[in-house]
Design a protein around this nucleic acid. Structure first.
Lengths: 184, 184
DNA sequence: TCGTAAATCTTAACGTTGTCAAGTTATACT
DNA sequence: AGTATAACTTGACAACGTTAAGATTTACGA
């Protein structure tokens, strides 16, 4: 995970890991089935860190603020660990999670934490049959903004904001402002 | 681009391209500076196709429907060409675009077409100073939903829809329903 | 028409990677 | 004490990106 952030994805190689550990080229094969297994393990680590980011930002907040905190944590994690986030976005760890002891904990952290946060947010206290659409909608909103920021396709500066924090907060407020719970 | 869709990204190799063309291993270096140059070229091709998808779906529509068409085209392209979409999402083609003759055309197609579509959509006819936030918000919404669908993290079935089309239409309608232009 | 310059291709080689096979050491348990 | 299991080593293979040196084709002006 250190390699990933210092040298990028293309440097995350089995031989490099072995070299950095001061061990021989084929040694990692005693710990990982193949390279994909290494990547999966890194992604599982990332999932925990991801959950920590979101928990930290959302802690102590309530209602819409809780949701905003999750979004800020989501985006901050992605920007602090771009390569890891990209890797996690395109890696299927579902079959690996089934073989992990603390699978439920891993699952409730990370992405599903956002879904859980949505489930208890005032965004859904509206009673419409369309309300279940708000879960993928809000999830996709955060996920999409995160991706656009990570890939540099949008920037706070291009929209008249000095720092990331204020930009994200403005976006979240604008998003929540549009939600049916706040426009009855 | 055919290789990409039939065998995935890891199969998109200079040597494979040479082999499939019936030419020798180093021949591609007469046409591409390096592998990254190959990828960039493929992404440029993809950008045109991307624009065609969105144009096709949005053609003949107006107002909110135009925006919905763009979204459907966006998502349909990504699902029809997953590997290509993923590659395009994580490739910076900005410096390549500057050296291409029809740069403006390429730019207005693809991602920026969505932004342009937003600029003329009723979503922004509200006069608020926050309106400029709606561009990244709507862009991120479509982009995020697309990613979640491509990576299989959400499915139409999981939300009670039979096919993709109806699911996307419902999402877009729900999204537009929440926009300030429609909740004055 | 001929010759030259550019574009395109070929072969050969280098270093790096993922992966496997065989054998070695160390650790732990009966 | 002996053995099984885990962790490691060396060595090798094919495939990849990339470069160098040279051959071939093509186009085009003298």
């Amino acid at each position: 995970m250190t390699i990933l952030e210092e040298s990028g994805v293309e440097a995350l190689t089995l031989r490099r890991v072995a070299r950095d550990t001061g061990v021989s080229q084929a040694a990692p094969y005693s710990h990982f089935r193949d390279k994909n297994d290494l990547i999966t393990a890194v992604c599982l680590e990332g999932t925990k860190l991801f959950g920590e980011y979101m928990s930290r930002e959302a802690a102590g907040r309530e209602g819409p603020d809780y949701l905003a905190g999750l979004a800020v944590g989501h985006i901050r994690f992605a920007l602090d660990h771009r390569a890891l986030f990209r890797l996690m976005s395109t890696t299927d760890i579902s079959e690996a999670v089934e073989n992990v002891a603390d699978a439920p904990r891993v699952l409730t952290e990370g992405y599903l934490m956002l879904a859980n946060g949505l489930a208890v947010s005032p965004l859904l206290h509206f009673g419409s049959e369309q309300q279940q659409l708000d879960i993928p909608l809000a999830w996709g909103q955060v996920y999409g903004i995160t991706n656009l920021l990570v890939e540099g396709r949008i920037t706070p500066q291009a929209h008249g904001f000095d720092d990331l924090e204020s930009f994200v907060v403005a976006l979240v407020n604008r998003f929540l402002q549009n939600s049916p719970a706040n426009t009855p």
